[in-house]
Design a protein around this nucleic acid. Structure first.
Lengths: 198, 198
DNA sequence: GACTATACGGAGTCATCACTCCACTTGGCA
DNA sequence: TGCCAAGTGGAGTGATGACTCCGTATAGTC
């Protein structure tokens, strides 16, 4: 896409390409750990390049963050698509829930840093929407299979997922506690659990 | 307590006392809105005092944040104690859950800012523990009354609560979505919803 | 009303961080 | 092997924000 706008642009040099990859990897780590407070300089150090190089590849801290997020969302979206073929739709949804929550700590730190940097661009938003659409498909399938109560929509399912993600990301929940908390949610999502009062 | 350590310390001047209060109020607002990125200068402006005055009352940004948090936790703890007398223990627990989640947006921003400022001192931690103990009492009462499944402990209950708080704080959930998500959790907390597999 | 300890305001200091400039290096082609 | 466009590193730069210094104002007392 970038090429189609600026023309067929001469291919990058090999060192530039590998530096770009190293920077992205380092950024994953650094922003995943340090979140908003992590500095671009630390990314450069971890990637083994100068700061200028980071800024040449990603003109802005925001753009680097966006790229990292887009990659991460993309991976999860692919995973959701994969799970759409699963024979047990209810189980598939729960697996997805768990994977997103597990993946969350780093992602959240990065997303927060991005908000902080003021740069929630279209690209990140689009990647996030693609993921939520993929999750929506999983949710509907599970409902059609009768594994999930019908009065739950994507927004509240997402709220529950984001909630568990954030709870885990900040409070460092140990696995057992998180599992038990998720069981409560999963049980609550069951058709049998639905209560009917206003 | 402060007096007992430093001696009976001559009383503060009236203007100092009211400025201190104004600063705390302003800090509630400012940090509640802006979180980590809010500046002490903004607090001073909003309180109608100079920056030096803020720093005289609270020698460090951290200490100001701690004070704000302690107040907030204290208020919720009192509310929990109040609800402990409620005739319907299950309902009381849900009310507490909802109130904590509702109160959360500002509190979370402040807590995050505090972590960011690196100063989670004993005082803030203690206030937070007092709150969780008060919630624990509510939880046990509800379990004894048979309103809540027995296999749920304070940690996972807290995880669910913190999760909803954080989901709401960051994603700006509208009331209806939050209500539906909470219903899923409440239904899942019901004894009838408990599943028994490993 | 005068006096002074207490408290105040805001200009200044210092550190940090995103981002730039430019002299130097190097991949890739002839 | 030599050339040079493409790429690099790191010392700046400017903005921001926590915190300090000190001359001025005022609450509270006689």
């Amino acid at each position: 896409m970038r090429e189609s706008v600026t023309g067929p642009a001469r291919a990058q040099r090999a060192d530039a390409r590998s530096n770009r990859a190293a920077i992205l990897d380092a950024a994953q780590e650094v922003f995943g750990e340090g979140g908003e407070s992590a500095s671009t300089e630390e990314v450069a150090r971890r990637a083994g390049v100068g700061i200028a190089t980071v800024f040449r590849h990603f003109p802005t801290k925001s753009e680097l963050l966006v790229e990292v997020l887009v990659q991460r969302f993309g991976r999860l979206r692919d995973r959701a698509a994969e799970l759409t073929g699963d024979a047990n739709p209810g189980e598939a949804l729960f697996v997805m829930f768990t994977e997103i929550v597990t993946d969350a700590p780093g992602k959240i730190a990065i997303a927060d840093a991005l908000v902080d940097a003021g740069g929630v661009t279209g690209r990140a938003e689009q990647a996030s929407q693609e993921l939520s659409q993929a999750v929506d498909v999983l949710l509907r399938r599970a409902q059609q299979a009768g594994a999930i109560r019908a009065d739950v929509g994507l927004p509240e399912f997402y709220a529950l997922m984001v909630g568990m993600s954030r709870a885990g990301a900040h409070a460092q929940l140990d696995l057992e506690v998180r599992t038990r908390a998720q069981r409560v949610i999963f049980d609550g999502l069951t058709p049998a659990a639905a209560t009917e009062d206003a």
